[in-house]
Design a protein around this nucleic acid. Structure first.
Lengths: 191, 191
DNA sequence: CAACTAACTTGACAATGTAAAGATAGACGT
DNA sequence: ACGTCTATCTTTACATTGTCAAGTTAGTTG
């Protein structure tokens, strides 16, 4: 099955090869033909699995997002309270993208994420990490017995998300080392 | 001088044409050859002014950043206090990029901004808008008579910047309409 | 006025995305 | 078991693009 005419699992192999190339030489140097070559298939083979380059890229994004979500959920699972979980999420958000900044640019850089959302029916409406934050935030309100209007909740969520995302953005773009105070659980995200 | 062999001011014309193309059809469709065609010169003419495509793009970024800084400084100039000025900056940051989201992706999307900074000796160390915020923030501390350590100041600045940048990022990516509460000066950025 | 040089043109090449047409091999019904 | 079907892959071809090398033009300078 290694060098047969039919690859067997080309679709996944293409995604993996794409991730490898991005990690090694960045997104700019990711081309359909290189990905195909990496899998030892002809340059047009990917068109059996993806309608165009963008669809492959979207598939890669989904794969990376899955990986990201695994780390997020793993760290959340270890937390006793929702408050801890939210802080943990912030920490993972920063460490994950500090560890591989290329992913950040790749995921959030070019295209608007809306396109990515719409292509993934799985993501019903929210971006999975954001949906997780939302769940934890609602839990947090319950735990603390806090009552907030829907609008207030939305604003809080945007604030939290904006700050964490913005910090990751700056960290990835400017190479700022900002493990920040969030290693210290005393730091409060919720004002 | 319109159709003479020597264009006269091709460099600036290329930058303007680049901005026009980005506004009309996005960054992806910006090619050296289209830019050249837009200026009615041959496809290799840009190489008299830029060593490669990236250098042209950096020049365009600088041009857009200048435009951005003009708006920021204009709005800051109208403010009586530094506190107002900081809030005004936040508002301009959001409105400027909400008005033309393509600029946001173009400026902060692909490459790390470090490269852009290093190519512009004018930007000594800080990104001009950030440098402006820093000035306003220090002024704010003076006005209020607040004493903070250098590290505390840095953290405050990162917080403010992260949140505003993150919100702009989300607004531009997800199309979220988030003029937010910042139209209301009561909203506090400094915690 | 001759030499120089920056600005531009022309022609070429390799890399790339993509379409069209053909080849292959496994699955499926009879 | 055998023919058909169809998803998968190859081959060929083409337009777009970034970039280079060599030539051309025209203004500038000695």
């Amino acid at each position: 099955m290694a060098d047969s005419y039919h690859h067997g699992n080309l679709r996944q192999a293409l995604i993996d090869a794409g991730i490898k190339i991005i990690n090694e030489s960045g997104e700019e140097s990711l081309s359909l033909r290189k990905v195909a070559a990496e899998c030892n298939v002809s340059h047009a083979a990917p068109y059996a699995h993806f309608n165009n380059k963008e669809e492959l890229i979207e598939a890669i994004k989904s794969s990376v997002t899955d990986q990201f979500m695994e780390e997020l959920e793993a760290s959340v699972a270890e937390c006793a309270t929702a408050e801890e979980a939210i802080l943990a999420m912030g920490r993972i958000y920063l460490t994950f993208f500090s560890r591989n900044p290329d992913y950040f640019v790749f995921l959030f850089g070019k295209q608007n994420i809306n396109a990515h959302l719409q292509m993934n029916k799985d993501y019903k409406n929210d971006y999975p990490p954001f949906a997780l934050l939302k769940r934890m935030y609602r839990l947090y309100l319950e735990e603390k017995g806090i009552e907030k209007s829907f609008e207030e909740q939305e604003i809080d969520l945007i604030k939290i998300w904006s700050m964490v995302h913005g910090m990751a953005s700056i960290a990835c773009m400017k190479g700022v080392k900002t493990s920040f105070k969030w290693n210290n659980p005393d730091e409060r995200l919720l004002v």
